[in-house]
Simulated assay, not measured.
Amino acid sequence: MGTRHVVGRVDEIPPGGSKFVQVGKFGVGVYNVGGEYRAVTNYCPHRGGPLCVGMRYPVIESDEPYQFEVSGSDEILKCPWHGWEFDLRDGISEVGTKRIRTHTVRVEGDLVVLEGV
């Protein structure tokens, strides 16, 4: 079992919210994505940008021109340096083969706990 860090109370990170935690070499962003907690290292694999200060937005899907559907709730995290986009649910880049480091987050009672960093 690795290290554990209490991030805060559940009510401090409501759906759509986030909190930055100074753990590990770069820090970790903890996100509430549609009621599920996700955590990623604050490091973009493209050029090392501070990923966790990037914008978040929902997945936009399209089957044909001028037709689109917005799904989810701010699952995509965009690096502020060069615009690389990553899915907070699995850490995979929306374009290419890059992946960000994800971490396990658990809810224990009313606390959000980050594990293994």
Rank of each mutant, 00 (worst) to 15 (best):
G2V: 10
T3R: 13
H5L: 04
V7D: 07
D11C: 09
D11L: 08
D11Y: 12
E12D: 15
P14F: 14
P15N: 12
G17P: 11
K19E: 11
F20K: 13
F20D: 11
V21I: 15
Q22Y: 03
Q22M: 09
V23M: 10
G24M: 08
K25Y: 06
K25W: 04
K25N: 13
F26K: 11
F26C: 02
G29M: 06
V30E: 04
V30L: 07
Y31E: 01
Y31H: 11
N32R: 10
G34I: 09
G35T: 10
R38E: 03
R38M: 11
T41Q: 14
N42A: 08
N42R: 06
Y43Q: 06
P45F: 03
H46S: 07
R47D: 08
R47T: 10
G48K: 09
P50I: 13
P50Q: 12
C52M: 06
C52D: 04
G54I: 05
M55Y: 05
R56T: 11
Y57K: 15
S62R: 15
S62G: 13
E64W: 09
E64F: 10
E64K: 14
P65T: 06
Y66D: 14
Y66V: 13
F68K: 14
S71N: 11
G72C: 10
G72L: 09
E75A: 03
I76A: 01
I76F: 01
L77R: 03
K78E: 15
P80E: 05
P80K: 04
H82V: 08
G83C: 08
W84N: 01
D87L: 03
D87F: 04
L88F: 07
L88M: 08
L88K: 01
R89Q: 06
R89C: 03
D90R: 02
S93W: 03
E94P: 01
G96E: 00
T97Q: 10
K98V: 04
K98I: 02
K98E: 12
K98A: 09
R99P: 02
I100N: 00
T102S: 13
H103Y: 15
H103V: 01
T104D: 13
T104V: 12
T104W: 00
V105D: 02
R106N: 10
R106D: 09
E108G: 04
G109F: 05
D110E: 15
V112I: 15
G116K: 06
G116P: 05
V117S: 05
V117T: 07
V117G: 08
